[in-house]
């Protein structure tokens, strides 16, 4: 199965773009399947089903969504293969912007929108920097000048990526995206493949559902920031 990871901040249009691109792929006779990783709730399953794309939604619930994603990749891949998909897409809900779900050897797509502010490409970090394709949505809501300056900021953060503007509502640009997706690496198994960027270290008392604030409740992997002049205060 050809494997594609799709990441991006919440509400940037990932689901619309992926559903439209899958529509093009399926129209060309290529079966698709989508696994959506989300945190607490999501209506995206309905959106994919409405678009005629087989979908499976997984919620991380009380766990770190990044770790949950990594620990369920084999099963997600197996489900895609079982459902007969030739192209399998894994969409993640932006996780926490700290991480990147992208895998070495699979096609990595980052979706961001034109309304996020000029520093967004820098703030988004690894999921954009490590992507092979950056899809920019909502370009119809800004000026040509803003699109071009925003594109430049993306290029500064990622020298290699193919950058494309896609309109998630009208589907404009989705045929071009689908053509790239159709050439994603064909993979037998994700076992022993590697993430492009490591997940955050964890296991402190808050990982174990602590809700109280205060030093006396903090155990495990705790890091204290230095405020005003410290290395983390820039």
């Amino acid at each position: 199965m050809r494997l594609i990871t799709v990441a991006g901040p919440p509400s940037c249009g990932k689901t619309s773009v992926v559903a439209k691109a899958c529509g093009v792929l399926q129209g060309n006779g290529q079966a698709c399947a989508v696994v959506k990783f989300d945190c607490l709730q999501s209506r995206d399953g309905d959106l994919y089903r409405a678009a005629g794309v087989p979908v499976s939604v997984a919620f991380s619930g009380g766990l770190c969504p990044d770790h949950f994603f990594a620990t369920n990749l084999e099963e997600a891949f197996a489900w895609g293969v079982e459902s007969g998909a030739q192209v399998g897409l894994i969409e993640t809900a932006g996780l926490c912007n700290r991480c990147s779900p992208h895998i070495r050897g699979a096609l990595a797509v980052c979706v961001i929108d034109n309304l996020m502010g000029i520093d967004a490409p820098e703030k988004i970090g690894p999921m954009l920097r490590m992507a092979d394709i950056v899809i920019v949505t909502k370009g119809d809501l800004v000026s040509q000048a803003e699109r071009e300056v925003y594109r430049y900021r993306i290029r500064q953060m990622n020298k290699r990526a193919v950058i494309r503007h896609v309109n998630g509502l009208t589907g404009q640009g989705c045929a071009e995206l689908a053509a790239i997706m159709a050439k994603a690496p064909d993979i037998d198994s994700v076992t022993d493949m590697r993430l492009r960027f490591s997940m955050p270290a964890a296991v402190c008392s808050y990982c174990l559902s602590e809700t109280r604030i205060g030093g006396r409740y903090q155990k495990g992997n705790v890091k204290k920031a230095k405020f005003a002049g410290g290395v983390h205060a820039e």
């Binding site: 700290r98 970090g125 690894p126 490590m130 020298k159 290699r160 960027f197 490591s198």
Partner: peptide, 16 residues
Amino acid sequence: EDAGLDVPESPDSPDS
């Protein structure tokens, strides 16, 4: 400094 392990695809990822 401890953001994560950055693993480039090739030693110096060339411009596309």
